[in-house]
């Protein structure tokens, strides 16, 4: 179930600082138990961190108050009844840690401190649930908007033929950014509502074409993806040096990549084959010494595409 998986992720991604209650009612060690009783009642809370000179020194709860009441010690200061050195959480720790602490200690609340150990907020189980729900709602809403806008784009535009063309510049030998154009194409196609199988094929073709430009061209080139209602056309164009023997280049395992590139796992000589397997149509032109132009067509719907 995807919702549950996302929730599990969120528990790791969300930081305690994002879900805690920031406005904290605190008391001083000198505050009497009688005063504490008033404070808890006024704010409708069941406990409070004890702070002295901005430093967290303890925590006091309604249970401590009941004990003091039973023993007739309402005049004594909070400092004598509080739990010293309370277990704290930090703002930059993931929520999953808090979930574990609640399970382990069975406390109702944890004071939250910043990296300098100063009190920054307080966390209850309710805060966690609210924080998760808020985040899920926002994310769901955002993705819905993205998907809705993207998948309706063809309906909203009135023309005889509509297509969207995405252009990406590819820099030669820039291995650090290798695959980024393909990633962006993949994300966009998903948002446009293409099926996972179509997205996979287009992404593989775009990736291999992108890698060819990065590894083999002198000055890089451009990858584009044209999205039409019935097909996706991936184009890769560069300014040379061109492929000396296209037939040879298409043979699985044939590679001209230098050793250092192969050591990184590139240059397996499978690129063009992979592209061909993913394509419904493939056109490759490469006058030697000049340029290379590759066009890959993926039908969104096999029957429609053939028309």
């Amino acid at each position: 179930m995807p919702e549950i998986t996302r929730l599990q992720e969120l528990v790791y991604e969300l930081k305690i600082g994002e879900v805690m209650t920031r406005k904290v009612v605190t008391v001083a060690p000198q505050t009497s138990m009688a005063e504490l009783r008033k404070i808890l009642r006024e704010h409708r809370i069941s406990g409070a961190p004890v702070v002295e000179n901005g430093e967290l020194v303890g925590i006091i709860s309604i249970e401590d108050l009941i004990k003091a009441l039973a023993e007739g010690e309402m005049g004594v200061p909070v400092g004598e009844k509080m739990t010293r050195d309370p277990v704290t959480l930090r703002t930059d720790e993931p929520v999953v840690l808090a979930v574990n602490r609640f399970a382990r200690y069975g406390f109702g609340r944890f004071p939250v401190v910043d990296e300098k150990g100063r009190l920054a907020g307080i966390l209850t189980r309710g805060d966690i649930i609210q924080g998760l729900l808020r985040k899920l709602e926002v994310e769901y809403h955002e993705e819905e908007i993205h998907r809705y806008r993207a998948s309706h784009i063809f309906e909203d535009i009135v023309s005889d033929r509509t297509s969207i063309v995405l252009h990406y510049d590819v820099v030669a030998r820039d291995l650090d950014h290798a695959g980024e154009a393909a990633s962006k194409i993949k994300r966009t196609l998903s948002r446009l509502g293409a099926s996972p199988q179509i997205v996979r094929r287009a992404a593989i073709a775009a990736y291999e074409a992108e890698m060819n430009i990065i590894l083999h061209t002198d000055e890089g080139g451009e990858i584009s993806a044209e999205v039409r209602p019935e097909q996706i056309i991936i184009r890769a164009v560069d300014t040379g040096p061109g492929i000396p023997d296209v037939e040879q280049a298409m043979r699985p395992g044939f590679s001209t990549a230098p050793e250092w590139i192969r050591e990184l796992g590139f240059g397996a000589g499978m690129g063009l084959n992979n592209i061909q397997r993913c394509a419904d149509e493939m056109r490759l032109e490469s006058p030697q010494g000049k340029w290379t132009s590759l066009e890959v067509v993926v039908y969104l719907d096999r029957k429609k595409g053939e028309k």
């Binding site: 290798a178 695959g179 990633s183 993949k186 990736y207 796992g265």
Partner: peptide
């Protein structure tokens, strides 16, 4: 392999 492109490949293929 452990260079950045491993991530690109893994991500593209989900």
């Amino acid at each position: 392999q452990s260079h950045p492109n491993v991530v690109a490949v893994a991500s593209l293929l989900n």
